[in-house]
Write a protein that binds this DNA or RNA. Structure first.
Lengths: 144, 144
DNA sequence: TCGATATAGAGACTCTTTGTCAACTATAAG
DNA sequence: CTTATAGTTGACAAAGAGTCTCTATATCGA
């Protein structure tokens, strides 16, 4: 799955950053919970079990850094928290989220049609699209 | 365009709420700036010129109420603020937002294709879609 | 191993938003 | 018109997420 620490260390170094124990532990937490969309607070709680001395500020700083380096990306489910997930963009695995209004479960879907939507927007509005954010709210199988 | 105070007063009363001066002034501000997507703070500033005694908490409370009554709806442009706009949903005028990454300008577009996207999602994922949130980030005419 | 430089931790701090509560007011009933 | 009362307001406290500062420490190339 192409996520190993040596590779990540190199990606940090390229930009003049160091691979510290704290960063490694935070990355571990994110990788081990790759199905989740963790908040900084949740990551902090997980990391504290392995590294109790860590500070919440370090978690925030690390997440910002990892986002800037495109290792993770920030999500917004309109629930008042930032959330993060591993970034698979190198593998062209664009996906979007279905958020259940009842149980809060988050599912992922791939939407091929979006490319044509973007094309339509660029043509009709003279707007150069570089990113999008698409979420669907509704009810999952169990909650319908 | 179907937005008059008497109608709004009725919609409040139906749910057991009163039309107060403060609420009227806040609604005025939103209606007069219907092209904007105002933050609570911006609304507070506008309203204070007409009604200096108003408190910021009243603005927040009123916005929450108006959102619950579907008179306005809350937007999230990932800039750290809640924003609000008049809700046109009665007129089936679904629109989405193009957000310029350079100048921050927000444009509105109608996207007809979304219905078929939703259909695709419902069929493929057994997920009942009731709402969606679609934003495109990029560069507007002036900033390309 | 050593030194330059990036990074961590602590905790104060910012900023948006919410809660509390006594005082007030819109509205319906008398 | 007056009153009753339930909803509302304003002031302020405080929550809650996230950021900043400053000094000590760790990383990693030389």
């Amino acid at each position: 799955m192409g996520i190993d620490m040596e590779d990540l260390r190199k990606r940090l170094k390229e930009k003049g950053h160091k691979m510290t124990t704290q960063r490694r532990v935070i990355l571990d937490a994110i990788i081990e919970n790759r199905d989740e969309h963790l908040t900084p607070e949740e990551i902090y709680d997980i990391v504290k079990t392995k590294y109790p001395e860590i500070g919440i500020a370090t978690v925030y700083r690390t997440l910002q850094l990892l986002e800037k380096l495109n290792i993770i990306c920030r999500l917004n489910f309109d629930d008042g928290y930032n959330r993060y997930e591993l970034n698979y963009d190198s593998e062209e695995e664009q996906h979007h989220h279905l958020i259940c209004l009842n149980c809060g479960r988050v599912m992922e879907v791939k939407l091929d049609h979006l490319k044509s939507l973007e094309k339509q927007i660029e043509d009709e509005n003279d707007f150069k699209v570089v990113d999008h954010n698409v979420k669907f709210f509704g009810y999952c199988t169990d909650c319908q």
